[in-house]
Structure formats: structure tokens, C-alpha cells
């Protein structure tokens, strides 16, 4: 293995990590409803708005898949343990079209593993878990991504 050290994220060349890329989780059908969105919003209380997004005609991937990392792991994908410590490194949601009430199909996969070295010299690896949503008609609704961040020294790959 050639150790790639960079201040920005680059694709890892570690074959022990790369072998997981492309792995698919179980396909899941979720039915989004105003009630479900209201449950998510109830965790925010009334801090930001008296009107909740459960009344919005447009829902997004952040409503269909509010925690992409947790969702992807729940579909059977392994939480990779590439270095000493694993944390939730971030999330991303992209909406390609509005999502209404009704069933949607979610397909999750391990999309990529990147690595870099922090300014403090700590090695970090980032696994991207990608969840793609499709409508009942097969239309792509959007994509949600969860980033699992591994921090620390050398470590083996274990699911």
C-alpha cells in the first residue's frame, strides 16, 4: 500500500478499505407522511417556527432519510473500522425533485473511502455511505450521504 498523505481528501489506495466500495445494503421501502415528518420536527420543539414542515407540499431527502449513516448501517452495510476511533463525520442531502406522501424505495451502498492527514498530523479516513431514493415510478428523488470518520493511527479493517 502506498500511503497517501494530503491536506485534502483523496481516494484511498488501501485495498483493505477499497474492497468494501460498491457494497449494497438491503433495499428498503419507506412511506413518507406528514405524521412522520411531524415526529422528526417534534424533536426540535417550537424553537424555530410555529409551523412545522409536515405541512409543506415539498419534502426532501432530509425527511425521507434524516440520518443517512444510521439508515445505511441499518440496511446491513458494515460500519467500517479503519483506524482507532469512529465518529459521525457529517451528512449531506441532495434533492432532485419534491417528495410527496407515499412509498419510496431507498438503496444504500458504500460509495467511497477517502483519506487525509490533518494539520496536526493525525491520519483520518472517511467512508461515504450513500442512500439513493426512488419514487414508486422509478424516478430518482435525491441522494443522502452519511460520512463515517475514522481518526487515529494505523488500524486493521474490520466490519
Amino acid at each position: 500500500m502506498r500511503d497517501v498523505v494530503s491536506a485534502s481528501w483523496v481516494f484511498t489506495e488501501d485495498n483493505n478499505a477499497l474492497k468494501w466500495c460498491g457494497m449494497l445494503g438491503a433495499t428498503v421501502t419507506r412511506t413518507l407522511s406528514g405524521n412522520q415528518v411531524a415526529k422528526l420536527d417534534s424533536s426540535l420543539g417550537s424553537r424555530f417556527s410555529q409551523k412545522t414542515s409536515s405541512q409543506s407540499p415539498r419534502w426532501g431527502m432530509e425527511d425521507l432519510c434524516p440520518d443517512p449513516l444510521v439508515f445505511a448501517i441499518g440496511t446491513g452495510l458494515p460500519r467500517l473500522r479503519l483506524l482507532e476511533t469512529q465518529i459521525d463525520g457529517g451528512s449531506e442531502w441532495e434533492n432532485l425533485c419534491s417528495i410527496g406522501a407515499g412509498p419510496a424505495t431507498l438503496v444504500s451502498r458504500i460509495a467511497a473511502v477517502h483519506q487525509k492527514e490533518s494539520s496536526g498530523g493525525r491520519r483520518m479516513m472517511r467512508t461515504t455511505y450513500e442512500v439513493t431514493g426512488y419514487s414508486a415510478r422509478g424516478e430518482k428523488l435525491g441522494v443522502a450521504r452519511g460520512f463515517s470518520l475514522d481518526v487515529g493511527g494505523e488500524g486493521g479493517v474490520a466490519a
Binding site: 465518529i87 459521525d88 451528512s91 449531506e92 442531502w93 434533492n95
Partner: peptide, 14 residues
């Protein structure tokens, strides 16, 4: 005023 707004993308780093 979110009646006329919708999110196209959002990305967060924790």
C-alpha cells in the same frame, strides 16, 4: 419565511 423556500441541497460536517 419558509412558505416560499425549499432546500435543494445541504451538507454538514460534525
Amino acid at each position: 419565511g419558509h412558505q416560499s423556500a425549499h432546500v435543494r441541497r445541504m451538507t454538514f460536517e460534525y
